[in-house]
Design a protein around this nucleic acid. Structure first.
Lengths: 339, 339
DNA sequence: CGGTATCTTGATATCGGTAACATTCGATGC
DNA sequence: GCATCGAATGTTACCGATATCAAGATACCG
């Protein structure tokens, strides 16, 4: 009554400043009883519980998360660090970070956890990141950064990407090697003997696709022509294939490590008067929506990003709980369409 | 020494359990002195400050954010709610939520704020959301939801979208009306007299684009053919144009409210033997990276999402501080390429 | 040299919850 | 009828930081 706290500052933040103590007074019980009544597994008489809950609802009581986190010594928060590098040769057209994010958010929400989002590019990490229970790292060149962060934060960490030799941290990713193999498999089953691999073999994930592709073909005595290509755009795919055609290279199949490259390739082939897939078969990677809407609809290797996000979240939580967690690779599957 | 706290649970969370009190003991000063030494504007002797800071760095001291937030009665957190509706007719290929998110994260980081990410789709909001200092809402059908949330949370809120009649909350969006007008402008300057509008006029933002487009043309006595179209995919753009061609509709320009639609339209035109842009000019909307990589490169209306994110963040913070904040519309601009 | 102004540091209380232990009270057993 | 048990609730003490007010140390003034 006498404490005119309501007149503080903007009265915005402390507006709903109803605490458990207030609620306890209203209900004629003690703080702890209120706490127990509101908590899921508190041992309270049904009558009291209902009364308290009704009162809480009526007055719009909000639990003070900071207080609880402080007392419980945990944050109920997982930090997600997204590497935002709108690099020249890798347009941010990829919907994948957002899909991963969606999966992560969904899974963590069901576990009653919050997602704290941070992007690199901004200099320092938000201070709250170090308070998180665990960290999930998304991004391409994430590897070195990951180690760096790990040392600095000393937090459980899960990384999205290609599993590497260094197993310093848990990695979740889709099976790029198998993806490459499934493309090879299809070429073989179609009787193609002169396939071309189009992509950047220096990139960790792409290297996996390349390895899977080459290895599988080798079993059939087929050695693909590898066109090492740094850029990831449709235009560069178009150009690459045009160069092949101009040189009169003989090939009857193209596996591009990315749908844009594949679409560019298809366009170049058609423009040169070749038929797709009769003369040359083309397989892309990522199965982006545009590929399905492409004309002709693109055959592509699909990755399940949403599920990847869910998995990342689960592993991060498990890691925090001190459970033993292993890296995991998600299967990818070839979606056969018209090319 | 005697407190074997280290053996708690997984020893993961309380591992770096170095508190200010510990640090104070090490430095031979009191807690509050440590607090002041670490805070930016604390009044402490230079010697003490350096000593404390060195000690903190050496032992990897981490500030307990929960404790500070509790004491300071604020969360230093802004909740971002992303409406994730992987609806059939609106593929999540749009990179825009991620770009907005990037802008928001960047701006908030410089203000030393954290981003708490939540998606709809998950039933209940994370409990931490109500602790946030403000809320930013991203998503298409956000409008009704927004009001609902506003009432429930009683938090300052900023919404991304088209400014509507109801000014219950602050809205940031790009100028769809102007975007539509700039497409019209280009058609006029090219001397096109039979333009087609392709898109869903029921959708708030699209309706704005339509209005701008029609209004601008009207000044020149031109009435476009409006093809009301619910879907947002390339395929549906393709189909829509094919229908027009089959009906022998006469038109020399197409304005699609989305790049995918536009690309589908271009494809249909080319397939029908028409030349783009000589016979029919096509303008898309959003200027997605895919469009630039399209063959031929797509002319499109560009929206500055990153800046939009920054603006959303700024307004959310201002709102929290109790400042007067108005809705704002960002200019969009036509990027002329080959179509 | 006494006294006050300034600078630096400290003791204490507090933010809003929850764990651990204590207490009350009715029910049950013998 | 008395002891015992268990359910329901309360008391107290924290979690780790910071604001407030007070006190000690040092410098400066006439």
């Amino acid at each position: 009554m006498h404490k005119s706290r309501r007149n503080d500052k903007a009265a915005a933040a402390p507006a709903g400043a109803l605490t458990m103590a207030d609620l306890a007074r209203l209900a004629g019980v003690s703080k702890i009883t209120v706490s127990r009544a509101l908590s899921e597994n508190g041992i309270v008489a049904a009558g009291t519980r209902d009364k308290v809950r009704a009162l809480a609802a009526e007055h719009g009581y909000k639990l003070n998360v900071s207080a609880r986190n402080l007392r419980l010594r945990q944050s109920h928060t997982i930090a997600v660090i997204v590497e935002m590098k709108p690099s020249v040769n890798r347009p941010m057209s990829d919907p994948y970070p957002l899909e991963l994010l969606g999966g992560i958010a969904q899974e963590l929400a069901t576990a009653n956890y919050s997602v704290l989002l941070t992007t690199t590019r901004q200099g320092a990490l938000a201070p709250a990141v170090q308070a998180a229970d665990a960290v999930i790292l998304l991004g391409q060149g994430a590897r070195q950064q990951a180690v760096h962060l790990f040392d600095r934060l000393r937090l459980p960490m899960v990384v999205w990407g290609a599993p590497g030799a260094d197993d310093a941290h848990v990695v979740v990713g889709s099976d790029n090697r198998q993806g490459g193999a499934s493309a090879a498999e299809r070429f073989v089953s179609l009787g193609r003997h002169h396939p071309v691999f189009l992509g950047d073999t220096d990139h960790a994930e792409m290297a996996e696709r390349h390895a899977g592709f080459v290895t599988h073909l080798k079993a059939y005595g087929i050695a693909p022509l590898v066109v090492n290509h740094k850029a990831f755009t449709a235009e560069s795919g178009f150009d690459a294939v045009r160069v092949l055609l101009r040189r009169k290279t003989h090939f009857d199949a193209v596996f591009a490590i990315n749908d844009l490259l594949a679409m560019g390739a298809v366009r170049a082939l058609i423009e040169a008067g070749l038929r797709v897939p009769e003369d040359v078969t083309v397989i892309g990677y990522d199965d982006i929506p545009l590929g399905a809407a492409f004309i002709p609809p693109l055959t592509s290797v699909h990755q399940n990003w949403h599920e990847g996000g869910v998995l990342l979240a689960r592993k991060a939580l498990a890691l925090f709980r001190g459970e033993k967690v292993a890296s995991e690779t998600l299967p990818s599957r070839l979606v056969v369409r018209a090319t």
